[in-house]
């Protein structure tokens, strides 16, 4: 209870929460306000924003309504943000917990695997996965999750390594608790706060990764994605730059919202000397 109140005392954290709520509302309202397929022809191409009352954010070079694409695009960004982040964080926690708790050879093997994922540029790995498994939106979401787990894994491992020899864990083990209970009910709750905060970084990165893929035309062409729209608008960048600018601002604000919420959570969950 107190945590939530402390969160609300931080103005930038509130701003983040409000921005995030707006994105959620866009996603929820997409079908109500723009029931038509956002990728279908809607009117004359390249109408500037506010020039036509029907298209208040204008139309792109294929004559599609930009506002409709922004609303529907919010769904993709949130989907990527939530699902890919969940995959990455759950995978990361499992790998990190096992490596950090058991140590020794298991740790050595898992860490070499983690190193491998970190040495290989994650965008390159993403390109490979898309090249092999195709660019359906499900594939893209899973692929982004698959390339994002190493950092949460390292973080979880570090927390587990520092916690596993704490006296309260030793005491619980001596009380007769088995490994699974020690990992999940004694250590994990104490290791979780920094990982939860880090999840906001993973989410921000995931949204950015998807938009970059879509920009390069490698994401699913059949769903409305902000990155896709930017990629489309590139050919008319010199004169009708708004086609690129508007979805970019949408991405920026979404990622900003996620980061601000993450920082707010950090101040609440990991109270530090930072303030004074």
């Amino acid at each position: 209870m107190h945590a939530f109140q402390r969160y609300l005392r931080n103005p930038s954290a509130i701003l983040g929460l409000v921005l995030l709520l707006v994105v959620v509302l866009l996603a929820l309202g997409a079908d109500v306000i723009f029931p038509r397929n956002p990728l279908a022809l809607a009117g004359r191409p390249l109408q500037w924003p506010l020039a036509n009352a029907r298209f208040w954010l204008g139309t792109d070079n294929l004559g599609r309504d930009i506002a409709a694409q922004i609303f529907h695009g919010a769904r993709i960004s949130l989907l990527i943000g939530v699902v890919a982040t969940s995959i990455a964080v759950v995978l990361g926690i499992l790998v990190g917990a096992v490596a950090g708790y058991y140590g020794g050879l298991i740790d050595e093997v898992l860490m070499r695997l983690t190193d491998a994922f970190q040495i290989l540029p994650n965008f390159l790995l993403l390109l490979l996965l898309i090249a092999v498994f195709g660019s359906h939106i499900e594939t893209v979401v899973i692929a982004i999750g698959m390339v994002s787990w190493p950092a949460p894994a390292r973080l979880t491992r570090a927390e587990f390594m520092s916690l596993r020899h704490r006296e309260f864990v030793e005491a619980a083990r001596l009380s007769g608790l088995g490994d699974l209970r020690l990992i999940f009910s004694e250590i994990l709750p104490n290791a979780l706060p920094p990982v939860i905060v880090y999840a906001s970084v993973v989410m921000a990165t995931a949204i950015l990764l998807e938009s970059a893929l879509a920009f390069l035309n490698l994401s699913d062409p059949n769903v409305s994605s902000w990155g896709n729209l930017i990629g489309q608008g590139r050919s008319v960048l010199r004169s009708e730059w708004y086609v690129c600018a508007i979805p970019g601002i949408a991405i920026l604000l979404t990622v900003l919202a996620v980061s601000l919420v993450g920082q707010g959570l950090n101040d609440v969950l990991n109270p530090r000397l930072d303030q004074q």
């Binding site: 938009s211 970059a212 900003l256």
Partner: peptide
């Protein structure tokens, strides 16, 4: 710093192109 962090790099590049090149 927060704004830079949230900006997609390719978009920043495109906007830079519009302003400084075009």
């Amino acid at each position: 710093g927060l704004l830079f962090y949230a900006t997609p790099s390719f978009w920043l590049g495109l906007m830079g192109m519009v302003v400084f090149a075009v």
